[in-house]
């Protein structure tokens, strides 16, 4: 069987320089990758220097210290991490289900629901939850989940719908089961779009988690609120800058993950 038949000797069939060429573009992406962390470190240093140059009063010192900032940061990250994980766990399987032949008909209903979740103003949603379900960490997580479900659900569905039908055909035609086609073909090909959705959800959650202070769930919003209530611009500034830096850092990490998890060959 090893005889060469169907042999290609023609130069006509050689691919034209489509092998990966490391070069300027790679350099550019490396520079682009380093830009964000450098900028964010600079911002943090500037904030640190600014706070150091100021004579902080008692009230300020009660909020601006390693312990309080650290605790707010951890609370914030826990809110974001937990809500995002829950969103992924709900929205990805739901998105898969809603692109399968039968349940596909229900897709508009679920998309409309998720749309409502996102359209309601986040403060309103949090207050609504606080009023109806009480205040606390889990209420804040629920609000974040409702709020960031849509991008993951929608992108999962779009990612799966965008997979070339002929590839699914090819898979089924060669004897792969539906499940095998889903896991070997559809999901890997949908991953870039799905990751983009998860990234959006993460950013939404980092931002919205600053409002979790209204349900007494802590987070960097505590600093912002304290700053406003006690009329201390330094505390307000520290809280907002840290929230912004965190959002950008998370976005940067998500972008990195997107790049690393994208299947090769696409």
């Amino acid at each position: 069987m090893a005889t060469t038949v169907l042999a290609s000797r023609g130069s006509r069939e050689q691919p034209s320089g489509r092998d990966n060429v490391p070069g300027r573009s790679a350099l550019r992406t490396t520079a682009g990758l380093l830009f964000t962390p450098i900028l964010l470190s600079a911002v943090c240093l500037a904030l640190f220097a600014y706070l150091g140059s100021r004579d902080l009063d008692d009230i300020e010192r009660r909020s601006i210290n390693a312990e309080v900032i650290g605790r707010s940061l951890v609370e914030h990250l826990r809110l974001v991490a937990l809500s995002t994980v829950i969103v992924v766990v709900i929205a990805v399987p739901l998105g898969i289900l809603l692109t399968r032949p039968g349940p596909r008909r229900l897709a508009p209903v679920f998309l409309a629901l998720a749309n409502i979740g996102q359209a309601v103003p986040s403060v309103g949603l949090l207050v609504l939850l606080a009023v109806t379900a009480g205040i606390g960490f889990s209420q804040a997580v629920v609000a974040l989940v409702v709020y960031s479900l849509l991008p993951v659900l929608r992108n999962t569905m779009i990612g799966l719908q965008r997979v070339d039908r002929t590839l699914i055909d090819a898979g089924r035609g060669m004897g792969l089961t539906r499940t095998a086609v889903l896991f070997r073909v559809e999901l890997p090909l949908a991953i870039p779009v799905m990751l983009a959705g998860i990234r959006v959800a993460l950013i939404i959650n980092v931002g919205t988690a600053t409002l979790a202070v209204f349900t007494n769930a802590g987070g960097l919003g505590t600093l912002i609120e304290t700053g406003i209530v006690l009329n201390r611009i330094t505390i307000l500034l520290t809280g907002s800058i840290l929230a912004a830096v965190l959002a950008l850092a998370v976005d940067w990490l998500a972008g990195l993950a997107e790049r690393l998890l994208r299947p090769r060959g696409l």
Binding site: D164, T166, A170, R172, G173, M174, L189, R264
Partner: peptide, 16 residues
């Protein structure tokens, strides 16, 4: 289908 090889009209290699 595992006993029947199928070459589809659009080739359909899995790009990933």
């Amino acid at each position: 289908r595992r006993r029947i090889g199928y070459v589809i009209q659009q080739v359909g290699l899995f790009p990933h």
